Simulated scan of single mutants.
Amino acid sequence: MTYYKAIRPDGTSWYDLGFRWVAERGPVEGVEVWHPSPSGEPRYDPAGHLAASTEPADCSGMGWPSRLLEVEPLADVVPGAMRKVGCAGWRVVRELPAWQALGPCGREVVAYLALLPTLTDDQVQIAARYAAWDAARDAAWAVVVRDMISTPHFATLTEPMRAAGIDFAALGGAS
């Protein structure tokens, strides 16, 4: 099994700024990282395990810019939620291209993010208008499938839209 860890550009954890995975610069291969007080629990415990993911694009809690490490366990791996796992210690196998943490279109996402600071005010307004239409279309599809999925799945699907102020109760049916 291959494991992945997204970290801040300076080598520290996204979860804990005081915890360093690797040096900011220089080689990372072979670096061993241990939790300062491992729990030894047979179940995942964020307070006692260092988290990693089984998928490069599923490193929850990461931001951008980021660095992506391939890591291997130095102790027993315990399963967490979804693709997250915990371990008392990890060895860094290598550093991967950071765009891989953004999914199969990561290169394109990085290129798009690089363009954002260059946008004019008019371009920002046009992009916002398209984003609003996209959100409205997504909300409409959510209403279409509401009766075909569970209430928790509907809540997960619509969370970003509800956070943006879309009131599904006003659209009729359950919300």
Results as ranks from 00 to 15, higher is better:
residue 77 V to E: 10
residue 79 P to L: 01
residue 67 R to D: 09
residue 91 R to G: 10
residue 78 V to L: 09
residue 80 G to L: 05
residue 79 P to N: 06
residue 57 A to H: 15
residue 84 K to I: 11
residue 71 V to P: 14
residue 77 V to W: 15
residue 44 Y to S: 03
residue 61 G to K: 00
residue 75 A to G: 11
residue 41 E to C: 13
residue 68 L to N: 03
residue 59 C to G: 04
residue 87 C to E: 13
residue 75 A to D: 15
residue 66 S to P: 02
residue 78 V to E: 09
residue 87 C to K: 12
residue 42 P to E: 14
residue 79 P to W: 04
residue 85 V to W: 12
residue 85 V to C: 15
residue 45 D to V: 11
residue 71 V to A: 08
residue 47 A to N: 09
residue 87 C to V: 06
residue 53 S to Q: 05
residue 61 G to C: 02
residue 50 L to E: 12
residue 75 A to L: 07
residue 77 V to T: 11
residue 86 G to H: 12
residue 81 A to G: 09
residue 76 D to T: 15
residue 51 A to Q: 09
residue 80 G to I: 04
residue 77 V to C: 11
residue 53 S to E: 03
residue 68 L to A: 00
residue 79 P to K: 01
residue 74 L to M: 15
residue 63 G to K: 01
residue 54 T to R: 13
residue 85 V to L: 09
residue 74 L to G: 15
residue 48 G to Y: 13
residue 90 W to C: 11
residue 55 E to N: 05
residue 92 V to D: 13
residue 79 P to Q: 11
residue 78 V to F: 04
residue 82 M to G: 00
residue 85 V to P: 05
residue 60 S to M: 01
residue 82 M to L: 05
residue 67 R to T: 02
residue 51 A to C: 08
residue 71 V to C: 10
residue 58 D to E: 09
residue 83 R to I: 00
residue 67 R to C: 01
residue 91 R to Y: 10
residue 50 L to T: 12
residue 87 C to Q: 12
residue 61 G to W: 00
residue 83 R to D: 06
residue 74 L to C: 15
residue 85 V to G: 08
residue 56 P to M: 02
residue 68 L to C: 02
residue 69 L to K: 07
residue 44 Y to H: 12
residue 41 E to F: 08
residue 41 E to L: 15
residue 83 R to F: 01
residue 84 K to E: 14
residue 72 E to G: 13
residue 87 C to W: 13
residue 55 E to F: 04
residue 47 A to T: 12
residue 84 K to C: 02
residue 49 H to C: 01
residue 53 S to K: 07
residue 64 W to R: 00
residue 87 C to T: 11
residue 51 A to D: 07
residue 52 A to G: 07
residue 83 R to E: 04
residue 46 P to I: 03
residue 68 L to R: 03
residue 90 W to M: 10
residue 48 G to Q: 12
residue 87 C to D: 11
residue 57 A to K: 06
residue 92 V to R: 10
residue 71 V to I: 14
residue 42 P to Y: 07
residue 66 S to A: 08
residue 89 G to M: 14
residue 84 K to L: 04
residue 65 P to F: 00
residue 70 E to G: 06
residue 61 G to S: 01
residue 47 A to F: 08
residue 83 R to C: 01
residue 50 L to W: 12
residue 70 E to T: 08
residue 43 R to F: 15
residue 64 W to E: 05
residue 81 A to Y: 02
residue 45 D to Y: 09
residue 61 G to V: 00
residue 64 W to M: 02
residue 45 D to G: 02
residue 43 R to Y: 14
residue 60 S to R: 01
residue 44 Y to C: 05
residue 49 H to G: 01
residue 49 H to L: 03
residue 66 S to C: 12
residue 63 G to E: 10
residue 51 A to W: 13
residue 86 G to L: 12
residue 56 P to F: 03
residue 57 A to E: 15
residue 82 M to Y: 04
residue 43 R to C: 04
residue 85 V to N: 11
residue 67 R to N: 08
residue 65 P to S: 05
residue 81 A to R: 08
residue 57 A to V: 03
residue 67 R to V: 06
residue 90 W to D: 12
residue 79 P to T: 03
residue 65 P to V: 05
residue 88 A to W: 13
residue 58 D to W: 10
residue 56 P to E: 03
residue 70 E to Y: 07
residue 81 A to V: 01
residue 82 M to E: 06
residue 47 A to V: 04
